[in-house]
Design a protein around this nucleic acid. Structure first.
Lengths: 209, 209
DNA sequence: CACGTAACTTGACAATGTCAAGTTCAGATG
DNA sequence: CATCTGAACTTGACATTGTCAAGTTACGTG
């Protein structure tokens, strides 16, 4: 067949579910959301056109599975950047945003799939879990900016809205020129978050964002 | 030729282009982006399945025309709210954001169509014009917050990113509970924009956002 | 009034999602 | 070890859709 590294082959293919998700992400990356079809994913995995039904039910099930995989990568990108940043809250927040942006620029169609209006988290527990984990990464990094005057939900929504909007508009090329380098304009734009106040409890020496 | 805005009936239907855009917007509102198909729009307008081709070329042409119409409504919603607001810069900015949000909540699928990644403004002059006008509305309202330290492009991108992200995430129901009333949480979230500084030249008495 | 052509119709085809029915095979059961 | 059961896939079919080619209708103009 093709790419099996598992010790045991469950049935026919090996790990078709995994293979379909992988081929789907390739299709998505190469041809945008319109290129992700059940039949093409099946063909790329070397199985018949109806094989994906058994694993995902229908097209939206496949899309949800791909979105779940996307949230894992997304979460990883954010956490990597946060870890690599200086320990100061603002530096960590900037890192989170840069991770967000890096993911968006690297996987624009995947980001779109993950945040489409019709994507329903109620139907897919794994999707809900993965997206919740991503939200937690943001919430953790936002925590030092939470205070009585600025509740967690509000602060989180502010940060999320801002970086999400910027990421989406950039991937849609809605801003004029934009070098492929996220550190260019991004730093200036993201300076809006400099204006978030640190909570009194976490008042330590902290460089501006 | 193509576009007819004449008072007389040009040929067969009357104003098929207009009728197709109208039926498309109804389909979009009722069934989401998947419900907008060439054949259904044609059927709703009472013409044969291939009639839209003559006016829009292909499906993406129809989508662009609908998006153009969307930008006009969008622009109108923002400008109405800005006009209705107090004249102070922060009140006008809050109005703009509320108009943005109102449009997003009223026409979620249309907003999605307008800002999809694959939407290309280079191919459709009317679309480019309508979207530019919407951007100008934002830029005008953002102008009092522009200074040497905060250039126009940066300030505009900050405001746009923030309100766009909030609007998109709300229409995708990404925040927990949300009453259908935009004035509920919105005011607290949008208070981030309170932190924008007024330019020295427009320093007048101004209530907080 | 004739005629050119824009506006629309009819018919066809390939791609796709989905369903129903059949086939193959891993592992449990006796 | 033989059998059986059901999961994993295949095959075939059908409706929907976008798109193209060719034909038809009727507006407006010369």
């Amino acid at each position: 067949m093709n790419s099996e590294a598992k010790p045991k082959k469950p049935h026919h293919h090996g790990d078709l579910r995994r293979a379909l998700i992988t081929s789907s992400m390739t299709l998505l990356a190469k041809g945008g959301s319109a290129a992700l079809t059940l039949r093409r994913a099946a063909a790329a995995a070397g199985v018949s056109h109806a094989a994906p039904t058994h694993h995902f039910g229908n097209l939206d099930g496949l899309r949800s599975a791909v979105a779940t995989e996307g949230f894992l990568l997304f979460c990883d990108a954010m956490e990597r950047h946060v870890q690599a940043a200086e320990p100061a809250p603002r530096a960590r927040l900037r890192g989170l945003c840069m991770g967000y942006l890096e993911f968006a620029l690297s996987h624009p169609s995947l980001l779109d799939l993950m945040f489409r209006e019709e994507r329903s988290f109620d139907k897919d527990a794994a999707l809900l879990a993965a997206s919740t984990e991503a939200y937690q990464a943001l919430a953790r990094t936002a925590a030092p900016f939470v205070s009585a005057a600025h509740p967690a939900r509000v602060t989180e929504a502010q940060i999320w809205s801002f970086i999400h909007g910027y990421a989406v508009l950039r991937t849609s090329r809605r801003f004029g020129q934009q070098a492929e380098d996220p550190s260019g304009d991004a730093a200036a734009i993201l300076s809006l978050l400099d204006r978030l106040e640190l909570a009194p409890s976490s008042q330590k020496p902290d460089a501006p964002l």
